[in-house]
Each structure stands twice: as structure tokens, then as C-alpha cells.
């Protein structure tokens, strides 16, 4: 109860000062509050199970999902991605020349690139590798880029999310704060924030659909959604969410979405990567 009291006091301060950023917690404090929120909301869900989204809450949905995972719908994407990974560019080089540590590197992303002063993601670097080798960039939402990333995600399974916000560059913290602001800001004609559905109402039902908890959202991308009938990236999912609340979507790999990915992945620190995933 003491903790609750502290939080309410903080909220009171926020209202009184009218400047939430100045009293908001450090990223470490945010992360503890965020993760504890879901631990308390769903005390029966082991922390390791949040990577499974709504299936961590719904035994019937989980049974169906596990049956689907017997013959994963994303398998063809992994195979195609593996082929693309190994196929040389016109100049004879391959992705391995850009990524000397191999394809299983998703656990290092997203990260803050101090030299560029921006959050970099794995799909961004894959496309930049293509361009650097004289190839055309792929679209950021679906298709071959999602397939290569499906292969890389598969090779990265089991890695633990460990996003860092380096203390020696205030721009990294600013990017995190922008991502957080995006997450909690209402948007669109429907006036929802991401948090309205995936924090405050997670586990509840929209019609018959169970709203998945925000904790764990970044672990399993790219994802094959039955609704899409194909595999697509995290930023494609962001676009869909934005459009669903009748808001303007941003471009794939836009600063807005990269910062959002930075914030959300930081909240997921400690969870295991289990992409590519399959969802309804």
C-alpha cells in the first residue's frame, strides 16, 4: 500500500506541476513500475510467459496457437529469408559482409548509435546493407525484408532482450522519452493511447478478442498474423494499430516508430526473444 501511496503522490505532483517529464521516473524506475504492473495484474502468469502475448492469459487460445505452432505458418518465411541471406548481391558480397557475427544478432537491437545520434533497428541495418552494396532497398513492412528478419529472429531465439540507454549521451534518453510519450499519448479519432488497451485494459475483451499485455510485445517479431496471411514487421503492426484508432500512421523505420520500439523493447528487458511468432 505504501508503494501505491507513493505513486498517487507522484501523480498528484504531475497534475500540480503540469510537467510530467520533470517528475517522471528514470528509465530504470519506469521499467520496474511497468513490469511490476503486469506481475500484479496477472499474478498467475510467470514472467517468462509474457513473451507469448494473449496466449499467456487464455488457455483455449493457447491450445489453438500451440496446434498452429506444430506446423508454423512462418516457416516458409524463414526458409526464404535464409536463401536471401546467402544469396550474393550483384557485387558478389553478401549480408554476412555487413553482419560478420552472423544472422543471430537480434538480441543486440534496437540500440542507440552514438555516431549517428539515433536508434538503429535490425530491419534498418539490413536495408542499409543492401543500399551500401548497390542493391535497391526493400519495403519496411512486409515481403523480403520481413523474411530476412524472420530468419535472423529464428537464429536469435533464446537471446535475452537487454536494451541499453547509455548514460553518456543525453540524446539516447531523449529518444527513449519520445518513445514513451508516443506510447502514452492519445491519438486518432478514437482517442486511444497504446496504454489504454494494452495496459489498463489488457486481459479484458474487445468483443471476444483478449487484449494482450504490453509486456512482451516486442519479443516475437516479425510475426505471421493469420489476419494478414503473411509475415510482417513490428513497424507494420504499429501502422495497423495507429490506423485502427483512426490515426495517421508513420513510415516504417520513421523516427517515431524507432523511438517507440526503443521504449517498448526497454520495457521488455529480461524477456527472451522468440520470434518469428504466429498470432491471430
Amino acid at each position: 500500500m505504501k508503494k501505491t501511496h507513493l505513486m498517487l503522490t507522484a501523480l498528484g505532483l504531475v497534475c500540480a506541476l503540469g510537467s510530467p517529464l520533470s517528475v517522471a521516473g528514470t528509465p530504470q524506475e519506469d521499467q520496474a513500475v511497468f513490469q511490476n504492473y503486469f506481475k500484479q495484474r496477472f499474478p498467475h502468469v510467470p514472467i517468462d510467459d509474457f513473451k507469448n502475448g494473449a496466449y499467456a492469459l487464455d488457455p483455449v487460445g493457447r491450445e489453438n496457437w500451440e496446434a498452429i505452432e506444430e506446423f508454423p505458418p512462418y516457416e516458409a518465411a524463414i526458409d526464404n529469408g535464409k536463401t536471401l541471406w546467402a544469396t550474393p548481391f550483384a557485387n558478389g558480397k553478401t549480408y554476412a559482409d555487413c553482419f560478420p557475427d552472423g544472422p543471430g544478432i537480434a538480441g543486440k537491437f534496437p540500440h542507440w548509435d552514438k555516431e549517428r545520434g539515433m536508434v538503429v533497428t535490425l530491419p534498418l541495418l539490413v536495408n542499409e546493407c543492401r543500399v551500401a552494396n548497390g542493391e535497391k532497398p526493400y519495403g519496411y513492412f512486409l515481403g523480403p525484408l520481413a523474411e530476412i528478419n524472420a530468419y535472423m529472429a529464428f537464429e536469435s531465439r533464446g537471446q535475452i532482450i537487454n536494451v541499453e540507454i547509455p548514460a553518456d549521451d543525453p540524446r539516447a534518453l531523449a529518444a527513449y522519452e519520445k518513445g514513451k510519450e508516443f506510447y502514452f499519448a492519445r491519438r486518432g479519432q478514437f482517442n486511444f493511447s497504446c496504454a489504454h488497451c494494452h495496459m489498463g485494459n489488457s486481459g479484458s475483451t474487445l468483443r471476444t478478442e483478449i487484449l494482450s499485455p504490453a509486456l512482451g510485445h516486442t519479443t516475437h517479431f516479425p510475426v505471421y498474423r493469420s489476419k494478414w496471411g503473411e509475415i510482417a514487421t513490428l513497424h507494420r503492426r504499429y501502422k495497423g494499430c495507429n490506423e485502427q484508432v483512426r490515426a495517421k500512421a508513420f513510415e516504417g523505420q520513421s523516427e517515431e516508430y524507432r523511438n517507440l520500439e526503443y521504449f517498448m523493447s526497454y520495457m521488455d528487458n529480461g524477456l527472451e526473444l522468440n520470434g518469428p511468432g504466429a498470432r491471430k
Partner: peptide, 26 residues
């Protein structure tokens, strides 16, 4: 300022969600 109606469960969302409060349109 009192928040008598805020349930214990929701409080953390509110602290992180403080930004949303200012983002509410007029």
C-alpha cells in the same frame, strides 16, 4: 488533490500514463 476513485491496480498505469493526461484535447 485527491484521487479517491483510482484503484490500486490502475495506479502504475497512471504514473507512466501521466503524459496522456496532458495530451487530452481541450
Amino acid at each position: 488533490m485527491k484521487f479517491p476513485s483510482i484503484s490500486r491496480r490502475r495506479a502504475p498505469a497512471l504514473i507512466l500514463g501521466a503524459l496522456a493526461i496532458t495530451a487530452v484535447g481541450v
